[in-house]
Design a binder for these strands. Structure first.
Lengths: 263, 263
DNA sequence: AGAAAAGGTTCAAATAATGAACCGGTATTT
DNA sequence: AAATACCGGTTCATTATTTGAACCTTTTCT
């Protein structure tokens, strides 16, 4: 693996719940030698991707990332495009709705709207990473990604978040197959207790899934009627979104979805 | 220079006006060998910092940057803090107002509001870089940064944007000295014709300038009264903003500003 | 004051980065 | 239609950077 990838991999460890990381903490997180870590962190800091808390010397994300995401959004206004569809769903279904993109370790929400309150711009609940194997977004993504990607995800350590989390590769593979067949992924309290969610992929130009949109509800509120409402809205939104992104929905999935919407 | 810094330096070349860059174009921009470039670009792509236009094979910024800036803003809500002050000024002065942070090649606006219309979130006019030596933001930043930084900026090629742009190091040094003495930087059509602007630094915990806030007006509208209004608003906003960021305004500057506001 | 832990530095050994030359596809010119 | 130019991408021996165990310094805790 190149030095560049190793260094950029360090940035993945930052999240809303872990906004600052010290040198030694990095060592325990990554297992990399302190000397190497220090050189990488210093390089990232020199470029503005990190900055240091003067008091604790811990590292946090730096100002350079602000500009990059602004340029990215000007180049490919994905967040803006996604926003309107998520808002529509949340307003009609009155449940937490979000869109997410794949990163190395899981799905990263780019926009979310609560069923009742205001939308939260860029970043889901906590700018947190949603693990692939334990969330509907993750399973939906894997179901419509290349085999190589699925394999690399499943070869990593699979954490257990609730009693219902599957950590067995065969079980997860079955979930993925199921989502591929149904055209929608579901997660029944596999990441957070008392939360049920549904997710579908959306597609970009490449024909592979670009990201997912999902609805999460309290388990107590879910019934077959709400389930159908959620899934219908997700499918319709993905069809529109994929069109806006000049994406190609795989033919067999397009068929599956069309049949679901008819019934 | 480390490989990491070389690779991340490539990302600096992207902007709203140059959103996609091909391999050969990168070669002419940077002078780096094609083989090396290709390896660096591929590494950045593998990490999600770049993605490729399938049709042209040109590179553009990737989805990974979206999450980073979300986490950064959750960690240090700088944009959010800056927003309210910029909005206040723009609403009261009715002129284009913005805040910017330093990057390697110039100031990068993080929020701007037109005197009349809506605010534009993250990114100024064009998510563009404002050169240090030719803008009021740049001069204000240099006037309150360390000597090493100023030296490194002035040792690079200094572009000429209008007839009024200073490209001579001594002239620019004089501008910087002047801004340091007055506590405010001004630029009279040195970057864009018919535009006059004023800028002041704001301060973070470190005691060095963290960024700048600035007002730009059409040259035709500027008179001594508007000038005083602009500068007073900028100084007051920077005092408040620096306080919110638990920043330290250098004592001599605090004095200079206090005197200006009295008169 | 002493111990422990954290951040940071050093330098020989190991490894990855480099770049000139090369390959293959596509668009343009003759 | 053949020749040419251009572009993205690849190869591999040479070269330079990265690596990590040990060491040093500063801060924090007892």
């Amino acid at each position: 693996m190149s030095t560049i990838e190793k260094a950029l991999g360090l940035l993945e460890h930052f999240s809303a719940s872990r906004p600052e990381i010290g040198l030694t903490e990095f060592k325990t997180l990554t297992g990399v030698d302190k000397g190497t870590l220090h050189r990488h962190l210093t390089a990232l800091r020199n470029c503005g991707y990190l900055e240091q808390n003067h008091a604790t010397r811990a590292y946090r994300l730096g100002p350079a990332v602000i500009r990059l995401s602004a340029v990215r959004e000007k180049t490919v206004p994905l967040v803006k495009t996604v926003e309107s569809y998520i808002n529509q769903i949340a307003d009609q279904v009155h449940e937490l709705t979000h869109a997410a993109l794949p990163e190395k370790k899981g799905m990263s929400a780019i926009y979310a709207k609560d069923g009742g309150s205001h939308g939260t711009r860029v970043s889901f609940d906590e700018a947190e990473i949603l693990p692939f194997h334990a969330t509907s977004s993750g399973i939906a993504m894997l179901a419509f990604s290349g085999d190589a990607f699925v394999k690399s995800v499943l070869s990593k350590r699979l954490g257990r978040y609730t009693d219902a989390t599957s950590t067995d590769i065969d079980e997860i593979t079955a979930l993925i197959e199921n989502a591929r067949t149904l055209g929608v992924a579901s997660a029944n309290q596999t990441y957070e207790a008392e939360v049920i969610s549904f997710a579908v992929p959306f597609f970009g130009h490449s024909g592979e899934a670009m990201g997912t949109i999902a609805i999460a509800t309290p388990a107590s509120r879910m019934d077959s009627e709400l389930e159908k409402t959620c899934i219908d809205h997700l499918i319709a939104a993905s069809q529109n979104l994929s069109r806006d992104l000049s994406g190609k929905i795989p033919p067999h999935l397009a068929d599956t979805w069309a049949k679901r919407l008819e019934s």
